[in-house]
Nucleic acid binder design. Sequence first.
RNA 1: GCCUCGGUAGCUCAGUUGGAUAGAGCAACAGCCUUCUAAGCUGUGGGCCAUGGGUUCGAAUCCCGUCCGGGGUACCA
Length: 597
Amino acid sequence: MLIEQIIREKITQAVHELYSQDIQPETVQIQGTRKDVRGDLTVVVFPYLRFSRKSPEQTAVDLGNFLKENVAEISDFEVVKGFLNLVISARYWVNLLSGIHGTEAYGFTPATEASPLAMIEYSSPNTNKPLHLGHIRNNLLGFSLAEILKANGSKVVKTNIVNDRGIHICKSMYAWLKWGEGKTPETTGIKGDHLVGDFYVLFDKHYKQEISELQGKGYSKEEAEQQAPSIQAARELLRKWEARDPETIALWSKMNQWVYEGFDVTYRELGVGFDKIYYESDTYLVGKEEVMRGLEKGIFIRKEDQSVWADLSDEGLDQKILLRSDGTSVYMTQDIGTAKLRFNDYPIDKMIYVVGNEQNYHFQVLSVLLDKLGFEWGRGLHHFSYGMVELPNGKMKSREGTVVDADDLIAGMVEVARKTSEELGKLEGYSEEEALDTYKTIALGALKYFILKVDPKKNMLFNPEESIDFNGNTGPFIQYTYARIRSVLRKAEERGIVTTLKNSGLFSLSVKEQDLVKTVSSFPVIVKEAGEAYSPALIANYVYNLVKEYNQFYHDHSILAETDEDIRNFRLVLSETISRIVKSGMGLLGISVPERM
RNA sequence: GCCUCGGUAGCUCAGUUGGAUAGAGCAACAGCCUUCUAAGCUGUGGGCCAUGGGUUCGAAUCCCGUCCGGGGUACCA
């Protein structure tokens, strides 16, 4: 049993015996003792003053004496300012570490047959342009969240809804037909998603030009936007697509395929993936059917112009459009259809949407709409809402060209990792392939950690001028510490050191060593909290703190020294345990750790 | 206007269910490579936790007001 639990129960008992009051063990407040004060754990005694009718100091002394007599692991206590600081015996810490060291996948709860199934939707790109930094945050959060939920004993299906139809892709198609000269990713050597994105930009360029020309001829802005030949042509393509015109469908398939091949490369670089991919072209009609069903049942209303609406004013929300006056579907319609298909396909207990906070209102509405349509899981939807990535001059806007392209960013990071590594003279003796592999691991570690360490719900800032750091509170810092521990362990093995952890209780532990065991032992709590709060940032900051503590320890203590065998072994086991926690913690973030760097 | 999220060091961010003297990194300055990897470690400076009230033994944390900023708010996705 953990020492905290023992203390809780004994404090409960003490309050009962000394002050004749019954309290709940869970309510006993225990926290780590401040670094500058003697002790390991601290009990807050203020809540018991009204029972004891004594000063905080006297109450703390009473309880301290009781604990010291009744708990073997408590070797001493000290009272400072009414806080009861308990000193825990070295024997306890050694036992604790030994237990952790012997536990497979410490802190992880494997899923069983009976485990709930969570479906996580993330990424969800449009097929008209390449992925950018905003998508990276989405992808990393989604993937990490899946890993965290798995670690907490959940079955997980990762899914992606690809927004593959609509006017946006028709714009790229039109531009390609008109100015593409038959270019393909093969003939140009350009990654498919970028090539299609280039035509999207090209479309926009011509479109804008046409608008200004029309405005010069006396058209209003709105008229010009409607009348421009390019947009007319794109709309015509959309009509043909919806009419299943074979030629249009073929072109659509071809260009989307280019994009998917491009996306796959980026996904692979990021290390994310999906168990099931849905395409909007397959789901939007289902959504329409559902809306029509709702209309028949009288849940929705049709206005004079034939548009279909949901009136959610009794829910404190507005009216929401579900089908346009021309009968075409909107964003909401598609999400209804996609949700229905998913729940047909899987026994989903929890549906999680990883989508930016600009969609908060949308998901509030979606939840209510699904509920009204009679899906009992509607209310249970969870919108994992995250803040946007901002640039120093504000929001990323694709139309203004202020986006940070995902592929460019990754390539740049790898280049910096390579340079830094070469300057430091690391990785000597590694083959070129091994080295490149490590550079990628470090680069992606830096990028992923940079994004995941921030509280998901907050907006975050990315400054492209200052490339992502490799020093300090960063992924590479954590990876570096891991690599160094692995190096120590390799050396120990070379020297034939066999580590058996003795608990003679004859040696004492430094404060740092106790702190490290304490921090390590709280890993399961952090994993659980991260799962409940859906927050990879909790894991990231925990791992950083652990590694920071270890680094300080590393410089103060010799691990391989032939001093006292028991102490040396304790330190080796401690190091090994920490390396394992670091590896699994980083694994929850989708960050791998190199054996050398 | 209404809804919603945020405001902590010059900058980027932490801050457990309300707990002791507010925590890191970056940037600046001063040290530390002959031991296990210096992508590191140690030290110095840097704070009205936006602001005014309230709740209580105790508030960056909870409640109310104000100011500033982001996002959303009926036919974009």
